[in-house]
Simulated assay, not measured.
Amino acid sequence: MRKSWAEYKREARKRERDEQLARERQLNTSVFRKAFSDFFKEDNRTGFGSHYLILGSKWWDFSEDDGIEPLDPSEIDEDDQTAAFNSLGKAEVVLSVLEDVVDTLARDISDFKRSEIEARIDEVKRSGLTGPNSKASLDELERLKKMRHNLNKRVRRTLPQTKAAG
């Protein structure tokens, strides 16, 4: 049976995603040489552990109509504490905290990759852009600059609307 245009397009998109994933994996060894853990230690990044002090125990359980129980009550502000008195309020606070976690982790990963790309750009510039490998060096420099430019872009993820007030 003959494939429809939509099936061909779906397969092409899957191939593109697979190729992009393979290129990203290859970068983990060629461009991103320093361990991510070393980056965290050197830059004194705290990560997002403090966010989970807000969530506390059983933050994922919405089967009972109880509020949020933070591990450290000083980490949560008073407005969030009063809003999270039942399971719906708790779910909204959890969503807000998890959005902060995603934003923090994404920023950390982006900063790490940007610093590694900058280090590779400096290496290419130090190696010299003249000589028999000058074209390859220039191509590598342009590729690294494009990667750095892509990291400066913001990505938009769409989520279902959770605010009902009109």
Score class of each variant (00 low, 15 high):
7 E>W: 00
97 V>G: 05
101 V>F: 07
157 R>N: 05
91 A>G: 07
132 P>E: 09
4 S>T: 15
100 D>V: 01
1 M>C: 02
43 D>H: 15
126 R>Q: 15
47 G>Q: 06
70 P>M: 11
108 D>C: 04
76 I>F: 02
35 A>S: 15
70 P>L: 00
148 R>H: 10
150 N>Y: 12
140 E>M: 01
133 N>Y: 13
110 S>Y: 02
84 A>H: 02
106 A>N: 06
87 S>T: 13
114 R>P: 01
92 E>Y: 12
154 R>G: 02
111 D>R: 12
68 I>A: 04
166 G>T: 11
144 L>A: 09
21 L>R: 09
44 N>E: 11
68 I>G: 04
114 R>F: 09
67 G>C: 05
112 F>H: 09
64 E>A: 09
144 L>I: 03
57 S>G: 06
148 R>Y: 11
124 V>E: 13
16 E>H: 04
25 R>W: 07
124 V>F: 11
119 A>P: 06
147 M>S: 12
77 D>A: 03
56 G>Q: 03
59 W>P: 00
33 R>H: 12
151 L>A: 00
25 R>L: 15
56 G>E: 00
34 K>Q: 13
87 S>F: 01
8 Y>I: 08
149 H>F: 08
134 S>T: 09
37 S>M: 12
29 T>I: 01
8 Y>H: 14
156 R>S: 10
58 K>D: 14
150 N>V: 06
6 A>F: 06
16 E>I: 00
81 Q>C: 03
46 T>Q: 06
133 N>A: 12
53 L>C: 01
33 R>M: 09
96 S>M: 12
145 K>L: 14
160 P>H: 10
18 D>N: 05
115 S>T: 09
164 A>P: 00
149 H>W: 07
118 E>S: 14
156 R>P: 00
84 A>C: 05
41 K>R: 15
105 L>D: 11
27 L>K: 14
84 A>Y: 02
22 A>S: 15
73 P>F: 09
128 G>M: 05
128 G>S: 10
51 H>W: 03
1 M>Q: 05
128 G>P: 07
135 K>P: 04
114 R>Y: 04
14 K>E: 15
1 M>T: 08
135 K>H: 10
48 F>W: 10
88 L>R: 07
106 A>K: 06
156 R>Y: 08
164 A>V: 14
89 G>R: 08
49 G>V: 02
71 L>N: 13
77 D>P: 09
124 V>D: 08
5 W>E: 15
77 D>K: 08
144 L>E: 10
30 S>H: 13
6 A>E: 15
132 P>N: 08
165 A>Q: 12
52 Y>D: 00
54 I>C: 01
99 E>S: 05
75 E>T: 08
105 L>H: 01
157 R>A: 08
138 L>T: 07
23 R>Q: 15
111 D>L: 11
130 T>F: 12
103 D>L: 01
85 F>S: 14
14 K>L: 15
157 R>V: 12
18 D>Q: 08
38 D>C: 02
64 E>D: 01
48 F>D: 01
99 E>Y: 02
143 R>F: 07
137 S>R: 15
139 D>L: 03
135 K>Y: 11
